[in-house]
Write a protein that binds this DNA or RNA. Structure first.
Lengths: 184, 184
DNA sequence: CAGGACATGTAACAGGTTACATGATTAT
DNA sequence: ATAATCATGTAACCTGTTACATGTCCTG
């Protein structure tokens, strides 16, 4: 399981509440691992009873109390243990691929529209990634430590998204009826 | 949900038993959607009670009986309905990314070893894909219909795997200690 | 005063994994 | 004999999603 470990990493960098962690998962970490707040609350509770994290209730003026979680020594040990343990590659899962394979049994134009929709979504994500790259890592050669690691996973996102975009274009070119031609 | 629809597509191309479907998911379809046999049996049962598929028990000499599933009209309608319905892009989920982000809190060499392991796995998959490409689609320009769609999803696999490989190399180059240098 | 951000949670459900169980045939 | 392949299934469990519930404060 990686959600536990993603939370531990995030909490190591900065202690925080479940709510704050959910915010962080909308951004940086969420680019390659997503989670809803319910899931996060559940896992935090479990990690607390395992002794991986400690909680402290913090009063706030105006706002409701928050439970700030910090990584305990057992949690640090768990990160190290997990890092050393080999993990299988996550199997690819792409619903759009299933749809394309199914295209012959439905409306091809609808499938093309779907591909175009996904293309747009991925293009937007790629833009965000490239912006982050320019903004936070203008001189990648000089990075080291955690900043370097953050940069490297951002690179994964950039490569994945731009590859996906190219593929969408290949699909659209192959499936879309071109002017002057008519489909058999 | 895409497993139902992946099974419908597979059964449209050829009727088969749960066991046979599980075999197919190890190959072609499994390249972009995976499922265990238990999952498949469960979903087939549900689809049968929804009237999307029909079953026929087939006696075999020597081997145990098998239940051969075929797509019913309601199943065909369901494929068409699902194709026209927009779906969200599957969020990326890469455990290796989490590990790299965590690398500073454990043994960097262990993380590099993991990256190298994954690189090897993806390289092998890419080889298989390229072999399939040469073997089954030697003249991609002339494809149409289902064969074209199969080719396009294979292309997705090839692009994804080769992009991943390049990224692994980028990571290894950035993280691995080079001769003559020593890490701070 | 309505709506959004902050903050946490319960409950029910759907999807996916792992372990176990059975039993025949065929190949080594 | 032993293992692999064919073929189906139950049970328990973990992971992930959706809907609902509560309550305050701040902004427009």
């Amino acid at each position: 399981m990686a959600l536990e470990h993603a939370l531990l990493v995030s909490l190591t960098e900065r202690a925080g509440s479940g709510y704050e962690l959910a915010r962080r998962f909308d951004k940086s970490i969420g680019y390659f691992w997503s989670a809803t707040h319910q899931q996060i609350y559940r896992v935090l509770k479990r990690m607390e009873s395992s002794g991986w994290v400690t909680v402290e209730s913090v009063n706030q003026q105006g706002k409701p109390d928050k439970k700030v979680y910090s990584v305990a020594p057992a949690g640090q040990a768990e990160i190290a243990r997990w890092l050393a343990e080999p993990t299988d590659a996550t199997p690819a899962r792409d619903e759009l691929g299933v749809k394309i394979r199914a295209a012959a049994y439905g409306d091809i134009d609808a499938v093309c529209a779907e591909v175009a929709r996904h293309r747009a979504q991925h293009a937007q994500r790629l833009d965000e990634y490239r912006l982050s790259e320019k903004k936070f890592f203008p001189a990648p050669d000089q990075l080291s430590g955690t900043a370097l690691h953050q940069y490297l996973v951002l690179r994964a996102g950039i490569r994945a998204e731009s590859g996906y975009l190219e593929w969408c274009d290949e699909v659209l070119q192959a499936l879309r009826p071109r002017k002057g031609e008519h489909r058999p």
